Amino acid sequence: MRIGELAERAGVSARALRYYEKQGLLTARRAANDYREFDESDLRLVAEIRTLLASGFTLEDARPFVECLRAGHESGGACPESVLVSRRRLAEIDREIRVLLRRRAEITDQLARACPGSRTA
């Protein structure tokens, strides 16, 4: 399928697909007229990339998931490299949560000092 069809079916722009290709996450064949040609399997790769991006992963994080799918695994998260990326991302999220909880406690304390007797959530 050509890039426009893949973009439409995947719900992304052709520009995004060209960027994924430039980053090495997608590989297009070139037709005689130099148009990009994609396989049906590329639709699954784009869906995986989009899901990961929506979950806070970076394009670089997505690489092992895409490679895992290309290797024939049912899930992009089934390979050891993908598991490592997921664990690293979870650790980052846990650190962010701790920072946010600390900030929340500081603001709650400031509010309690500024407005004694007020209720905070």
Rank of each mutant, 00 (worst) to 15 (best):
R70Q: 07
A10Y: 05
G4H: 04
S41G: 10
D42L: 11
A16L: 15
P80C: 07
T120F: 14
A78Y: 01
R103S: 04
C68A: 15
S75G: 02
R36H: 08
E81A: 15
L25Q: 11
T120D: 03
L100W: 07
T108L: 09
L26S: 03
F65A: 10
R36K: 04
G76N: 15
R18D: 00
S118H: 02
I3V: 14
D61N: 08
F65D: 02
R87T: 03
T27D: 01
V99C: 00
R88F: 02
A14V: 12
A71L: 05
L53H: 04
R104K: 15
F65S: 05
L100R: 05
M1Y: 06
A47S: 14
Y20S: 13
E81K: 15
A121P: 06
R95C: 10
L53T: 10
G76W: 12
D94A: 09
M1G: 14
A114H: 09
A7G: 05
R88I: 01
A114N: 11
E81Y: 08
D61A: 12
R15C: 00
E67Y: 06
L69H: 09
G72T: 13
R89N: 10
D42Y: 14
M1F: 05
G4Q: 05
I97L: 06
A78V: 02
R89H: 12
V66F: 06
F65P: 05
R36M: 02
S75V: 05
R119S: 10
Y19P: 05
D39H: 14
S55P: 09
V12C: 07
E106T: 06
V12S: 01
L59W: 14
